[in-house]
Computed example of a mutant assay.
Amino acid sequence: MKTVTLTSFRSDVRAHMLQDILKNEGIESMLQGERTAQVLAYIPGMDIQVIVFEKDYERAREILKQSFPENTEE
């Protein structure tokens, strides 16, 4: 199954919060770059990406808009 990036965070706490919210809604997600972002936090662009399956993207995007509106681009 194909995956897509839903959003990214500088903070692993916020990434895990979104991941928990998605899980509670029945949407599986993965975090990419978590360890690198923790070790190299001082380097711009070292964000943690929240990845979801393509089939769940639209629903996950709505959840993201409700939970973290500052992380959605309009």
Score class of each variant (00 low, 15 high):
73 E>W: 14
35 R>T: 13
3 T>I: 12
62 E>T: 05
34 E>T: 10
40 L>S: 07
17 M>C: 09
62 E>L: 11
46 M>W: 01
71 N>I: 03
64 L>M: 11
9 F>M: 01
73 E>L: 14
42 Y>D: 11
49 Q>L: 13
51 I>E: 03
61 R>M: 12
26 G>A: 03
28 E>T: 13
60 A>H: 05
58 E>Y: 14
33 G>M: 01
18 L>P: 08
65 K>F: 02
54 E>H: 01
40 L>P: 00
19 Q>Y: 01
72 T>Y: 12
8 S>V: 07
54 E>V: 05
54 E>M: 02
8 S>F: 11
30 M>F: 12
13 V>P: 06
22 L>N: 05
33 G>L: 08
30 M>E: 14
47 D>Y: 08
69 P>E: 08
52 V>L: 00
40 L>Q: 07
3 T>H: 11
51 I>S: 05
20 D>L: 12
35 R>S: 12
70 E>A: 10
26 G>W: 06
9 F>D: 05
6 L>E: 08
8 S>M: 09
18 L>R: 07
12 D>T: 13
74 E>R: 13
27 I>G: 03
55 K>M: 03
43 I>S: 01
61 R>C: 10
45 G>L: 02
14 R>E: 15
45 G>E: 02
44 P>D: 00
58 E>S: 15
18 L>H: 06
45 G>M: 07
67 S>P: 04
61 R>S: 15
26 G>M: 02
34 E>Q: 14
70 E>I: 04
26 G>Y: 08
20 D>W: 10
74 E>A: 14
56 D>I: 05
15 A>I: 11
56 D>A: 05
72 T>H: 03
29 S>K: 02
9 F>I: 03
16 H>E: 14
5 T>L: 04
41 A>N: 14
69 P>Q: 07
22 L>P: 01
57 Y>H: 10
44 P>Q: 00
5 T>P: 01
30 M>K: 15
32 Q>M: 12
25 E>I: 04
53 F>D: 05
7 T>L: 06
10 R>E: 13
36 T>Q: 11
